[in-house]
């Protein structure tokens, strides 16, 4: 689980070009959107593709993303439960 969290942090920084953040800056329970990392709806679409590509999880409705992308901890838990690869 902690490996997955580490992996997610690295991938998100890389994928979303978050140059000003390092893995250490992101706490497991930090909000990804809004006040935390400051991600937005376009990032949510990017993360949905990442879920599909890396973990075989297909979301079809951007609204589902809102629940799942709350924080690294929530996201990691969802991936553990639903991953197909």
């Amino acid at each position: 689980m902690s490996n997955l969290k580490q992996e997610l942090k690295e991938n998100i920084i890389e994928l979303l070009n978050l140059e000003e953040f390092s893995v250490e800056d992101i706490n497991d329970n930090d909000a990804l959107f809004g006040d935390g990392l400051g991600l937005d709806s376009i990032d949510a679409l990017e993360l949905m593709v990442m879920l599909d590509k890396d973990y075989g999880i297909k979301l079809t409705d951007p609204k589902e993303g809102k629940e799942i992308f709350q924080s690294i901890a929530v996201l990691a838990e969802y991936i553990e439960k639903n991953r197909t690869k």
């Binding site: 376009i42 679409l45 990017e46 593709v49 599909d52 590509k53």
Partner: peptide
Amino acid sequence: AYLTPTAFI
């Protein structure tokens, strides 16, 4: 497949 929107936008 696996396309993301940022570059398109």
